[in-house]
Design a binder for these strands. Sequence first.
DNA 1: CGTTCCATTGAGATGTGTCAATTCAAGTGG
DNA 2: CCACTTGAATTGACACATCTCAATGGAACG
Lengths: 251, 251
Amino acid sequence: MSSTYGERIPVTKGPQCRHSPSTSCGDCRLSGICLPIALQEEEVARLEDIVNRGKPVQKSHTVYHQEQEFSAVYAVRVGCIKTVRTTQDGKEQVTGFYFPGEIFGMDGISNNRHTNSAIALETSAVCEIPFDRLQELSSTLPSLQKHFFQLMSSEIAADQQLITQLSKNSAEERMAALFLSVSTRFSARNQSGVRFRLPMSRGDISNYLGLTVETVSRILSRLQSAEIISVDNKEVEILDFEQLRQIAAVA
Amino acid sequence: MSSTYGERIPVTKGPQCRHSPSTSCGDCRLSGICLPIALQEEEVARLEDIVNRGKPVQKSHTVYHQEQEFSAVYAVRVGCIKTVRTTQDGKEQVTGFYFPGEIFGMDGISNNRHTNSAIALETSAVCEIPFDRLQELSSTLPSLQKHFFQLMSSEIAADQQLITQLSKNSAEERMAALFLSVSTRFSARNQSGVRFRLPMSRGDISNYLGLTVETVSRILSRLQSAEIISVDNKEVEILDFEQLRQIAAVA
DNA sequence: CGTTCCATTGAGATGTGTCAATTCAAGTGG
DNA sequence: CCACTTGAATTGACACATCTCAATGGAACG
């Protein structure tokens, strides 16, 4: 497992293709990320049958609400989704950011209710995979079953990485690690990992990393004066990967 | 999901029975905790076939090491197990405590290597469940497949609860929540949830909660002077559940 | 072209960490 | 069975990273 957090899925690049929301799984250029590599063509077809493809979600709208009954897991096709947990005393915790090809919503399986809300950070599209049908299909497709065990295990590993960051790393280290993670995930989709636009606000970042917006802002300024990154609102350019990695204590 | 963390599994009390390490799953008094309630007798028998029962582990010995190849998940029969993640730069993070009836080791599934080490906090016994055979069996027993999806999802939920605690709660709140969680888990096994012996050291607690031993010690003293709990080394008695719940911000 | 929300920056407060000393508990070997 | 050693836990004094509060600046949007 890489030591930047948030990379939930071993990534292999899929073939390029058009952006249409109705693209089938077999043709989707994200298939290398979200689908088990191991699946046969015929198996992909069976999976496709149960997937509701490309449901659009407007910015700041939810895919599902916390406490809502769990019925499906989701794959991001376009955009970016955050998951947020609200505690009984009203505190909110951002528990993850999900980029195209990544799967979210697996928290709800244990008690049939979602323990998070999923909210679009920008206009997005998600594929819905009804879980009961996925379970049935998994019984007859061992490689699919295995893939979902692996997906959930990746989520556990990612969460534990965040736990470690929150528990043991400084604000600067956490931010460096987050930037590296986001960069890696852009690269995985053949987009620039050097220059990119952050889909999330400072508030989302600070909440996720257990900091305040002010601290996030100050650290961005610091990293900028050190010429490690360049930030203009949500546009980020990484100027010095080596130093960033060193700060993230990842090397 | 309860709002104290660490409770990974919905608990139902099983019938009382003897303590022998060779007790079969069907007879084990923990079966209500670690087994799917839904399994039929005949199905339990098939699961039993693949389980290596009651392997003993001495205090501070490991069940598996981080980086070691993943081959099985484990259930605690006797004692207590902690899982620990070591980062590349040598920091250690305790990611969980596991009590009798609870399952651990699911982190390793995604890349076939464990991302944690599992270490016994006291002389313990664990049941080993080879994962490849569990996968096979799951394909033919839908309720078992579902149970393992749920188990992994519980682990995710527990990890996210810890994330929230680390990110949003004070040292005192984290400790109160931990005591409540431990208490609940003792109760689930028909042991006293009021007076119990902590299996873990101050160091383990502080590490898990993202604090220092000194802070843990000070907070214990504070909770003791406030007559909320009484502590004598590892012996704990909860004197005022109501206040403890209030502190944990769980109510 | 105001209104509103988001981001930045500063100054001061504080919870928790660090360092250090002491006590306590548990073994171990003489 | 008693020093002796060793590691764990407690307590105090002080430091510092990050938070809080407050003011300003900038971007987005109707």
